[in-house]
Computed example of a mutant assay.
Amino acid sequence: MAPAADDVVADLGFGGGLGLGLLIERAGLAHGIDYSPSMVERAARRFHSGKLRLHTGSMTALPLADAELDGLITLNTIYFIEDVALAFTETGQPRSTARRPRHCGYALACWIISDRPA
C-alpha cells in the first residue's frame, strides 16, 4: 500500500536513498533517518525537496515526536541494530493520533500502514 499524498512517513536506515525518492514522490512529508552522518550528508546533496527532512539517528530512539508518522519503511537494516527488541518497540509505537501503525516485517522491506480503509 502506497502512502497517501498527505501522509507523514519515514525511511529508517535509508542508505543509498532509493526509499527516500519513492516517499518524496508519494507522501506529503518524508523523514530520512540514518545512523551514518555520511549517508545523511550524501542524501542532502542528492535530494532537493521541501518534502524531505533528514536526521542522523537510530531506530532505537527515533528523532521524531510521538504521533508524527503515519507510516515507515526500512530495508536491510535489522542486522545493524544491537537491541532489536528496543527497535521494534520504538518503531511499533502508535505515531499518528488518527491511525495506529502495524508491522508487516523487517527482513526485506516494510510499509507500516494505517488502519484507515484503502
Results as ranks from 00 to 15, higher is better:
residue 39 M to W: 02
residue 2 A to Y: 03
residue 93 Q to I: 11
residue 17 G to N: 11
residue 69 L to S: 08
residue 89 T to Y: 04
residue 111 W to H: 05
residue 21 G to A: 11
residue 118 A to D: 12
residue 111 W to P: 02
residue 72 L to R: 06
residue 45 R to D: 12
residue 94 P to F: 00
residue 12 L to G: 01
residue 4 A to G: 04
residue 108 L to P: 00
residue 1 M to K: 08
residue 31 H to K: 13
residue 111 W to Y: 09
residue 115 D to Y: 01
residue 4 A to Q: 09
residue 6 D to K: 12
residue 47 F to A: 05
residue 51 K to V: 15
residue 62 L to Y: 02
residue 98 A to K: 14
residue 78 I to W: 14
residue 63 P to D: 05
residue 65 A to Q: 14
residue 49 S to D: 04
residue 5 A to P: 10
residue 46 R to W: 03
residue 9 V to E: 00
residue 88 F to G: 05
residue 14 F to C: 13
residue 86 L to C: 09
residue 55 H to M: 07
residue 106 Y to I: 02
residue 46 R to C: 03
residue 12 L to D: 02
residue 49 S to A: 12
residue 5 A to S: 09
residue 30 A to I: 08
residue 2 A to V: 10
residue 104 C to L: 05
residue 39 M to Q: 11
residue 38 S to I: 15
residue 87 A to V: 11
residue 27 A to M: 07
residue 37 P to G: 03
residue 82 E to A: 15
residue 29 L to V: 10
residue 100 R to W: 04
residue 7 D to K: 02
residue 88 F to A: 09
residue 99 R to H: 06
residue 84 V to Y: 10
residue 58 S to V: 08
residue 40 V to E: 07
residue 68 E to V: 05
residue 82 E to H: 13
residue 4 A to R: 13
residue 6 D to E: 12
residue 114 S to K: 15
residue 98 A to P: 00
residue 51 K to Y: 08
residue 4 A to S: 07
residue 77 T to M: 15
residue 15 G to E: 11
residue 3 P to D: 02
residue 6 D to V: 15
residue 59 M to S: 07
residue 23 L to G: 03
residue 31 H to V: 03
residue 109 A to Q: 09
residue 9 V to F: 00
residue 19 G to Q: 13
residue 113 I to Y: 00
residue 100 R to A: 05
residue 22 L to M: 12
residue 17 G to L: 12
residue 76 N to D: 14
residue 91 T to R: 00
residue 18 L to M: 09
residue 18 L to V: 15
residue 106 Y to R: 01
residue 13 G to I: 06
residue 20 L to R: 10
residue 24 I to W: 07
residue 114 S to L: 08
residue 76 N to R: 03
residue 82 E to K: 15
residue 93 Q to A: 07
residue 38 S to A: 13
residue 51 K to A: 09
residue 79 Y to P: 04
residue 39 M to S: 11
residue 19 G to P: 09
residue 28 G to N: 12
residue 20 L to W: 05
residue 114 S to R: 15
residue 18 L to I: 13
residue 114 S to W: 09
residue 52 L to D: 08
residue 84 V to K: 15
residue 75 L to S: 14
residue 85 A to M: 06
residue 17 G to I: 11
residue 24 I to E: 02
residue 40 V to C: 04
residue 106 Y to E: 00
residue 9 V to C: 01
residue 71 G to C: 06
residue 115 D to H: 11
residue 35 Y to P: 01
residue 103 H to K: 00
residue 102 R to M: 03
residue 21 G to K: 13
residue 42 R to C: 03
residue 22 L to N: 11
residue 3 P to K: 15
residue 104 C to Q: 03
residue 96 S to T: 12
residue 108 L to A: 13
residue 71 G to A: 07
residue 95 R to L: 07
residue 25 E to W: 02
residue 95 R to G: 07
residue 80 F to Q: 15
residue 91 T to M: 00
residue 111 W to V: 12
residue 41 E to S: 14
residue 8 V to P: 01
residue 72 L to D: 00
residue 18 L to R: 15
residue 78 I to G: 01
residue 9 V to G: 00
residue 68 E to G: 03
residue 69 L to N: 06
residue 16 G to K: 12
residue 8 V to C: 01
residue 94 P to I: 10
residue 74 T to V: 00
residue 65 A to R: 13
residue 27 A to P: 03
residue 112 I to K: 00
residue 116 R to W: 03
residue 72 L to P: 01
residue 23 L to K: 10
residue 28 G to Q: 09
residue 55 H to T: 09
residue 109 A to E: 04
residue 18 L to K: 13
residue 40 V to F: 03
residue 64 L to D: 02
residue 102 R to G: 01
